[in-house]
Design a binder for these strands. Sequence first.
DNA 1: GCCGTTTTCGGCCCGACTGTTTTCAGTCG
Length: 570
Amino acid sequence: MKNKEIAEIFDRIADALEFKGEQFFRVLAYRKAARIIEELTDDIDVLNKQDKLREIPGIGEGIAKKIDEFLKTGKMKKLAEAMQGISKDLLELLNIQNLGPKTLKLTSDELGVKNLKDLKRVIEDGSLTKLFRMGEKKVENIQKGIALFEHGKARTPIDRALEIADTVVKYLKKSRLIANATPSGSLRRMKETIGDIDILVSGKNGKKIVDYFTKMPGVMQVLASGDTKGSVILETDLEPIQVDIRIVPEKQYGAALQYFTGSKEHNVKIRSLAKEKGLKVSEYGVFRDKKTIAGKTEASVYKVLGLPWIPPEIREDRGEIEAALANKLPKLVELEDIKGDLHIHTNNSDAVNTLEEMVNAAIKLSYEYIAFADHSKAAFYANGLTEERLKREINAIAKLQISYNNIRILRGIEVDVLDSGKLDFSDEILSQLDVVVASVHQGFKKRVTERMCSAIENPNVDIIAHPTGRLISRRPGYDVNLEKVLEYAKKYHKIMEINAYPDRLDLNDIWTRKAKEMGIKIAINTDAHGIADLEWMKFGVSVARRAWLEKQDVVNTLKWKDLKNLLNIR
DNA sequence: GCCGTTTTCGGCCCGACTGTTTTCAGTCG
């Protein structure tokens, strides 16, 4: 698929045009196109051949033509034209905080800056300070931006970000000045990784609150501190992270929460919808002329626009506003709907807890069932089970089940899909199990699509685990044609997994939604290697919610007797 | 560049903070 490549080209064009001072909205159009194409699950080449590109909102005549040009010739004239006289190295510098397109253009025109090295040089020799509207402070801020840029501003995984946000909220709430504090932004939308942590605060004395905030333990640097806004870089035991707070009066909390939760794209659409109705939406409320007509609660903001409240997880401008207008919002699956976990490890392979300890932990979560899926023998690095040890585990589970009548303990395996495409255990053994979870753990570049498809064809296989194998910010995932794998899953009625391990979250939101649209059932599993990991279920549910999944799309929301039928368990 | 039951032209979300200025431009979210 050329989707990613094309999205990157449009982003590059947007950068170049922005740098050159092209009309803001034209730049925006390219950025929007890039985002849409990046999120597309269909092959752009196929869409183009079917002449369907123009049906996608945000892709018009101009962009469609450029895509066609690129797919046919491998080139795009517009890119070469936009890049005329500038280099990739120069545009990279736009990622430096406090250095925007205007300033970069000026340094390039006046001082001949072409790359990071040049930029550092003009700071060193003092020539940057001499530019129009440039002063010492601005240069200092650009230097700080460079430091962050060089450090590589990594995005923080959702689980870590939640912990940090929790610490900040606790600190804030200790102050009497503060009535309320809520994590918002991408954190509230439960994106898989978080850039900055945004926290909305209500209280009366903004200035004092910001002061208190910037004095929090661990603050390395204060980026901004005004009457209603504060921004700091916070030291953590991993990477430093930016934390922003925004202070509003109690009666504007809903409007501010709506605004601060985003996404930006969602808000742009909400605000333009308001405009059509002669209203104005800002973080201070919804206004008709100068009169406030909503804003105390988030629901009130949506209501005056004629919309039901929209759950934060789907506020990405991926059709949620249109669905809300048509009163067709999904009733999203919730953590409380989950009745079991179908992918759990024990100390029989590479995990820390025993069968019984895991069973007891599952009972505490009020689960009706759990399935043990230890590794198979090919996963020797994970102390995978041999046939003999699997048999022993099966017997142990049978024994355990006798003393636990309030939970069903399912006999399963996470069986490796071998390089040949065969499974690591014979059909005879697999057929004795309640749940077979198949996954690829090796040979990431060896015909992964074909191997997965042949695993799906095996009648003993129930679930395909972590279908792309990606590890967030660490490993891109297998070389796999997911579209084809999903088609097979659909054909053979197999279940696809959302692996809730925070570094995996695999399938992701976009592909899970695609799977749902194809009518494929999903299992949300933690892949727990210890009791504490069972809590990861909430991250998996968040992915499901971001993918618009409803309770009936997720197999482990089923009652035991229904799951039993689905899996044909004796 | 995209888009359209007010438009095929003229809009396109809205505001805070900072630094460098004497009223505003640039950056960010």
